[in-house]
Nucleic acid binder design. Structure first.
Length: 558
RNA sequence: GCACCCAUAGCUCAACAGGAUAGAGCAACACCCUUCUAAGGUGAAGGUUGGGGGUUCGAGUCCCUCUGGGUGCACCA
């Protein structure tokens, strides 16, 4: 559309003394089919000291162009409708769908971005609420890459803390504990703690030995953490989600990095020592959403608390040399992150840009790992694949585990990514695994339909005449294809993958309407057939790339 | 109590960053497979955009307030 906006802006510039660049920013694409491009004249009214309707009228009279089918002034809007042939040719010739050309044009090639996402406590199998972090993060990674960025994806492993110590304690007699048992062990030990509070002393003793560098304890912690990370990453690997680097929190203790940063903090008058010896950062005056903003960074024996280690880590990321520094974080960490960010600024560095997302809710309420009322990502994955495979058996007669994965995993990602990050996702099985309508399967299915047609085509459609595509369904589809680049840029700008879900459904829906109303193969007009083949080939490319950016795969037959 | 986010059709979500008549999917109703994949398409139905004020030529969108949900509020990670 941007090419049409430019075109219209120039037409208006010629017909008036208004600047094209200014007009271009005011143009819009009407939602209800009033026109292809519209100029609301209300803002111009003040400047030109004329009624909006008058401005629109005058412009409508002055502007003539062979590309225009009609131009009209309606309610203060200047409405322009193009000749479909012009529209089709112009939009299709200028549409960019592939990474290379989009990266080239938008000038982001070679820039670097560090993205931290997931960073789940390494204590159990992830549930779908945590997975929202990974899915958003991974989609953003894909979008940045697509736009030509070099990405550096990090996972901060919180391998220090009571939670890990509890697992170490609970598995002290089970050297070969398996990943799949950890969740139950974690639930049980939390339960046991209620009746036997003395366990806590042992847990803290373990933690203490770990922090002070006791080799055996470190080995025990490492065993649990690595079991966990291996288990978690194996699950994410199935979903096509990978990291470049795992950063271990314990490193900041064992390599005494916390001490160095503490020295720097001590130079600030904001750091003070409480009566019992704890070191506290006074954060009054910062924009932090709590009444009495203080950040405690050490215990009374001056050993580090998580906040201090997090500051160290965040500093490391800030100094990585990347052009951008991104962090995906749950909404529960909003205030905490403000505190860390303030500390980072105090130390003269720039905190990361943060993407917050809200939690996934179950129909019966919130999820809680400790209480055990969670939907585990792996259960969701298994159910989704099973349901997809039964659908394949029902519709195609045979089981196909590979395709079932593509369909099932796609449904998972789509169901979680389709809501805006700031909104709670309400998870229910029926909705998430519904393969009809607004779903990833819809896009995958239509993609496969296109592939099926293209395979049967026996003509060369590499040089189409798009101006033959005059039907309303064709024009509507072309407009959607032309939006692709703007959509990707919008996801990039707002760091919001849900925009892609909406887009891919709208695009696919337009294709489906075209497909059911128009024949492609075997029509008499050979040039039209070529144009239509090229059109659906472009459609497939847009669907495939949009799904790819969501982390969703396609198959040629479904 | 204080702070931030959210509230749109019975349900789940959109609305291009203030623009025209608020759009989809699911569910329910009525149609369409001798035609390139029916996981599809068409039609009808469904709304005082949580309530109330305000700003604006124009508000679902911005401001205030109330109600309801989510999240958090130093010595956990």
């Amino acid at each position: 559309m941007s090419i049409l906006f430019k075109y219209v802006a120039k037409l208006i510039e010629k017909a008036s003394d208004l600047e094209a660049s200014k007009i271009e920013s005011m143009l819009e694409e009407p939602s209800n089919g009033f026109a292809d491009v519209a100029l609301p004249c209300f803002r111009l009214a003040k400047e030109l000291k004329k009624a909006p309707a008058m401005i629109a009228c005058e412009l409508a009279e002055k502007i003539t162009d062979p590309s225009l089918k009609s131009i009209a002034a309606v309610n203060g809007y200047l409405n322009l409708t193009f000749e479909p042939a012009f529209l089709a040719r112009t939009l299709m010739d200028s549409a960019r769908l592939d990474s290379d050309s989009i990266a080239e044009v938008n000038g982001m090639k070679g820039k670097t971005v560090l993205i931290e996402h997931t960073s789940i406590n390494p204590n159990a199998s992830p549930h779908i609420g945590r997975a929202r972090n990974s899915l958003i993060g991974d989609s953003l990674v894909r979008v940045f890459k697509f736009l030509g960025w070099k990405t550096d994806v990090h996972y901060f492993v919180n391998d220090v803390g009571k939670q890990i110590a509890m697992l170490v304690y609970a598995t002290r007699d089970r050297p070969n504990v398996e990943f799949n048992d950890l969740l139950q062990i974690y639930i049980d030990i939390n339960e046991e703690l209620k009746t036997r509070p003395e366990i806590e002393d042992e847990v803290f003793a373990l933690l203490n030995r770990f922090e002070s560098g006791d080799a055996d304890t470190i080995t025990a912690f490492k065993r649990i953490v690595s079991t966990c990370i291996k288990g978690q990453t194996a699950i994410f690997a199935q979903l096509g989600i990978f990291w470049d680097k795992f950063d271990y929190e314990s490193r900041y203790i064992h390599e005494h990095i916390t001490d160095k940063v503490l020295e720097k903090l001590k130079k600030s008058p904001k750091l003070f020592e409480a009566e019992d010896g704890r070191l506290v950062l006074d954060q009054h005056g910062e924009e932090i959403g709590i009444q009495d903003p203080m950040l405690v960074v050490t215990r009374s024996d001056k050993t580090s608390l998580y906040a201090l280690r997090d500051i160290c880590y965040t500093l490391d990321k800030a100094h990585s040399g990347a052009d951008r520094d991104l962090l995906v974080l749950g909404e529960d960490q909003k205030v905490y992150f403000q505190q860390i960010a303030a500390a980072i600024r105090l130390l003269g560095s720039t905190p990361p840009e943060v993407v917050h997302y809200s939690f996934v809710l179950l129909p019966e309420g919130k999820m809680s790992t400790r209480a055990g009322n969670v939907v585990l990502l792996e259960d969701f994955m298994r159910e989704a694949v099973q349901k997809a495979d039964s659908a394949l058996i029902e519709r195609r007669g045979t089981s196909d585990p590979e395709k079932a994965k593509v369909v099932g995993y796609g449904a998972i990602k789509y169901s979680i990514l389709r809501c805006g990050p700031e909104k709670n996702v309400l998870f229910d099985w029926e909705n998430a695994l519904n393969f009809n309508g607004d779903s990833s399967v819809y896009a995958q299915y239509n993609y496969a339909r296109i592939q099926s047609v293209l395979e049967k085509a026996d003509v060369d459609y590499s040089r189409p005449d798009y101006s033959l595509l005059l039907a309303s369904e064709e024009v509507a589809l072309i407009k959607e294809i032309a939006r692709f680049e703007a959509v990707v840029l919008s996801v990039y700008e707002h760091l919001n993958p849900s925009i892609l879900c909406n887009y891919v459904f709208g695009l696919t829906s337009k294709f489906s309407q075209f497909y059911t109303n128009h024949k492609i193969l075997g029509i008499e007009n050979r040039d039209l057939m070529v144009a239509r083949l090229a059109l659906i080939s472009k459609t497939a490319e847009a669907i495939k790339n949009a799904l790819y950016l969501l982390g969703i795969d396609t198959v040629n037959q479904l």
